[in-house]
């Protein structure tokens, strides 16, 4: 490390830079613009939270990073996704596979359906290792290490289990282990706790924190819950109907939200000890007005 030229330019350059990303779906002549010209950046070691309600385009943004969306004519992605300076939107199908899993790994919302039901979890972890780290001799040991890292008890026994034999929380841990086995530089977690019980949610977030500390990678955390953003993310972007309506450091946004939509989302966080008179709902008519002005 020391003999590399520590040019100021290079350290400043973000790990991931998304510019003017537009994602359109078309079916039967109708065009649905799911993401409408967004730009953001993630630096090395940084955690970015993407917040927004259902359908605001968070997942498709995440998927578009490594081109996991359906191909043209169904889906069209324009703009640039610069990872380490290379534009992933334009690179070949072969080339993109070297980024998937190895550089950018994913954790999805539904662990139950995201794991292949007919293969053992060890098998599914091994697949990732064999693909990206052919030099690893003892794949089994590597798997057990990964399962250990995500705090699965008895990894030697567990790795022969099929997904349906594990609880939801365990399945999500396996998903995390699978994302981590190739030591990616960017981890994209798409609502990793939404499908889980509240207590399990907290455990998984603790685990994520622990892992971030150990592995020092960048994370994009997608959520519609501001509650888990505080204390976890460095930066936040707020998405509303395919656009970024607000972006900035987490503390600033939480303490001083400028956009009405952000305020509404923050108001949804249940706070301990605070008596809530009524459930906060989002007034869309109001938002439309503020959007147009």
């Amino acid at each position: 490390m020391t003999d590399e030229n520590p040019s100021a330019e290079k350290t400043q350059e973000p790990l991931l830079a998304v510019r003017d990303l537009v994602i359109e779906f078309r079916s039967r002549g109708e065009v649905n613009r799911a993401v409408d010209g967004i730009s953001f950046a993630v630096n090395k070691g940084e955690t970015l939270a993407v917040v927004g309600e259902s359908g605001s385009g968070k997942s498709v943004t995440a998927m578009s990073l490594t081109r996991l969306l359906p191909e043209e004519p169904v889906c069209r992605v324009t703009g640039a996704v610069l990872f380490d300076g290379k534009n992933l939107v334009a690179c070949s199908n072969r080339a993109i596979r070297r980024y998937r899993g190895r550089e950018i790994a994913y954790i999805f919302q539904e662990p139950a359906t995201s794991l292949n039901p007919v293969f053992t979890i060890g098998n599914q972890l091994a697949e990732a290792i064999k693909l990206h780290r052919p030099d690893v001799k003892d794949v089994r040991a590597e798997i057990i290490r990964a399962l250990d890292l995500v705090q699965i008890r008895d990894p030697e026994k567990r790795f022969k289990d099929y997904p349906h034999q594990l609880s939801g929380g365990m399945q999500q841990r396996v998903m995390i282990a699978m994302a981590l086995v190739c030591h990616p530089r960017l981890l994209v977690a798409d609502e990793p706790t939404t499908a889980l019980d509240v207590t399990i949610q907290a455990q998984i977030m603790d685990l994520m924190r622990d892992i971030r500390r150990r592995m020092s990678m960048s994370i994009i955390l997608i959520t519609h819950n501001f509650g888990i953003v505080s204390g976890f993310a460095d930066k936040v972007i707020v998405m509303f109907r395919g656009k970024i309506v607000e972006a900035g450091p987490t503390d600033t946004i939480l303490s001083n939200p400028r956009h009405a939509y952000t305020k509404a989302l923050i108001a949804c966080i249940p706070r301990l000890g605070e008596q809530q008179r009524r459930l906060t709902t989002i007034d869309y008519a109001e938002l439309e007005k503020s959007q147009s002005t």
């Binding site: 596979r97 899993g101 995201s114 998903m175």
Partner: peptide, 22 residues
């Protein structure tokens, strides 16, 4: 269309193996 296919693709598994293995 199922999600485990996306998972496999996101791992970098080649399309042919996604189809014929998963």
């Amino acid at each position: 269309r199922s999600e485990y296919v996306t998972t496999a693709r996101a791992k970098g598994v080649p399309e042919g193996i996604v189809m014929f293995r998963h």
